[in-house]
């Protein structure tokens, strides 16, 4: 843009110089005519004056003309100098511009190079980083996979264990509930057959060991520790004997030949 403006300035300046030169060299027809006319006018008037005056006038005019010529030449020289200077300036400007341009280009080139180098470097770094990241990710994934595998294995193990536990619990619960049921059947039977004697002390604690056979018939009753009197002890034995045959367990595996019966009545 600046360059363009300098150029246009330069052209307009050149045009003026040309126009002025044409004018100064008298190449302009109208100005010659004008000058001629002026002389005639002056001649007409000169008629009124002497020759010396004319000579002087001619001299003066010549002088003027010369002066004008000198002026013109000087002007021309000045213009030329100016032109030259302008040209030089333009040239220097151009050169400066060119230099600037080249410098800029060089700089740009350098920058470009640096940039590209940097880019290359970055790219390299990125590549390295990417590679590292990739490796890391791969490692991580391997790790995750390994972990997942381990987890899966342990989950599987836990699952199996849980299922085993559940099965075991279920089995135990079933056995337990059946055992409780069996126990309750025995408790009910014996309680309904224990005629608590009036001499039953508060805090009675008596243990009976009862031997039964699978039919529920009682083959032996042994009184263990007991703080009751003879009548109470007999009532306990009677309660057990009266309960025979004892209820049979819900499942045969729960049958127990030896029963421990604790008589611990609530007061």
């Amino acid at each position: 843009m600046i360059i363009l403006r300098i150029k246009s300035f330069f052209y307009s300046f050149a045009f003026h110089i040309v126009a002025l030169t044409i004018l100064g060299l008298g190449l302009s027809f109208s100005s010659k005519e004008l000058r001629v006319a002026n002389i005639e006018d002056i001649a007409i008037e000169a008629t009124l004056i002497d020759v010396d005056d004319i000579q002087r006038e001619i001299d003066r005019l010549n002088q003027i003309e010369r002066q004008e010529e000198v002026n013109r030449i000087e002007q021309q020289q000045l213009i030329e100098a100016q032109r030259q200077q302008a040209l030089a300036e333009v040239e220097s400007e151009r050169k400066a511009l060119q230099l600037l341009q080249s410098q800029r280009e060089a700089a740009e080139q350098v920058a470009d190079q640096q940039r590209s180098e940097l880019q290359a470097l970055q790219a390299e770094q990125e590549r390295i980083a990417r590679d590292a990241e990739q490796r890391r990710i791969e490692e991580e994934q391997r790790q995750i996979q390994a972990d997942q595998e381990r987890q899966r294995q342990s989950d599987l193990q836990a699952q199996i264990q849980r299922e085993l536990d559940l099965q075991q619990e279920a089995r135990q619960a079933e056995e337990l509930s059946l055992l409780e049921e069996y126990n309750l059947m025995l408790v009910r039977r014996i309680e309904s057959n224990w005629i608590k004697p009036p001499s039953t002390i508060s805090g009675l604690m008596c243990q009976l060991n009862v031997t039964q056979i699978p039919s529920g018939d009682i083959v032996d009753v042994i009184v263990g520790d007991c703080n009751g009197d003879e009548v109470v002890i007999r009532s306990l034995e009677a309660a057990v004997l009266r309960s025979a045959p004892l209820p049979r367990p819900p499942v045969p595996s729960l049958f127990d030949r030896n029963l421990i019966i604790d008589f611990i009545p609530d007061d």
Partner: peptide, 25 residues
Amino acid sequence: MILFSSQSLAQLRIEIRQGVERPIQ
């Protein structure tokens, strides 16, 4: 694996906490 049998369970302990108020026959 746990196997169950009557042996693995505690011996049956029966607690009698009440009697009946009925006459002796």
